[in-house]
Simulated assay, not measured.
Amino acid sequence: MHSPEVIYKGFALTPVVAPDDGMYTAMLIVREPAGTQRATGMLGEFPSPQEARRFAFLYGMAEIDHRKAPEPDWTEKEWHSRKHPRSASLWN
C-alpha cells in the first residue's frame, strides 16, 4: 500500500507498506529534485502500518541529511511476546 508522498528538502519520500505474517514491512521510494528515483530495500518489520510509514519517513530524512539511520523503538521479540487482544479473556 502506497502512502501519500512527503516532500523533504526537495526530495519526494513515498513509503510502501505491506502486511507480512501479522506484522508490516516497509520500504521507501525516494525521488530526488532532479527526478532520479530509487528505492530502499526492506527497512524491517513493524507492528502497525503507521509505525512502518513513520520509520520509513525518518529513515529517508536521515539519509537525505547524511545522519545515522534511525533504529525502531521496539524489538520484534518484544512485539511477538505480547498477547493478541482477541486472545485475552474477558473473565480474568
Rank of each mutant, 00 (worst) to 15 (best):
Y59K: 02
H80C: 01
E78T: 14
R82L: 15
L58K: 01
D73I: 07
E71P: 02
E76I: 13
Y59L: 08
M61K: 11
F55W: 01
R54V: 06
H66I: 02
W74I: 13
G60W: 00
F55V: 04
W79M: 12
E63V: 05
F57M: 13
L58H: 04
A62P: 00
R82I: 15
E71N: 14
K77W: 02
K68V: 11
H80S: 07
D65W: 03
T75Q: 09
K83V: 07
D65E: 14
E76D: 11
P72M: 02
E63F: 05
K83L: 06
P72F: 08
E76F: 03
D73K: 01
A56H: 07
K83E: 12
L58M: 09
M61C: 12
P70F: 07
F57H: 11
A69G: 03
R54I: 05
R53G: 08
E78H: 11
A56Y: 00
K77M: 02
E78Y: 09
E76H: 03
K83S: 07
D65S: 06
R54W: 03
W79H: 11
D65T: 08
E63W: 08
E63K: 02
W74S: 15
P70E: 10
I64P: 11
E78W: 04
K77R: 12
P72L: 05
L58N: 11
S81N: 13
F55R: 00
G60A: 03
D65P: 00
K68M: 13
E71S: 15
F55Q: 05
A69C: 07
E76T: 05
R54S: 04
R54H: 05
H80W: 11
T75I: 12
E71L: 15
E76C: 08
S81T: 13
I64Q: 10
R54Q: 12
H66L: 09
E63M: 09
P70M: 10
K68I: 10
I64L: 14
M61V: 02
G60D: 02
K83H: 08
F57V: 13
L58C: 09
H66R: 06
W74C: 14
H66M: 07
T75D: 11
W74A: 14
F57T: 02
S81W: 03
M61R: 12
R82D: 09
F55S: 00
A56Q: 05
R67W: 05
R82T: 15
K77S: 14
K68C: 08
K77D: 15
K68R: 12
P72T: 06
K77H: 03
R54N: 07
I64V: 12
W74G: 12
A56P: 04
R54D: 07
R53F: 07
A56K: 03
G60M: 04
K83F: 05
I64W: 02
S81C: 08
I64D: 12
A69V: 10
R53L: 01
W79E: 14
H80G: 00
F55T: 05
P72I: 02
K83N: 06
T75L: 01
G60Y: 01
S81A: 15
A62E: 10
H80K: 14
F57Q: 04
A62N: 04
W74T: 11
F55C: 09
R54K: 09
A56W: 01
F57A: 02
G60T: 00
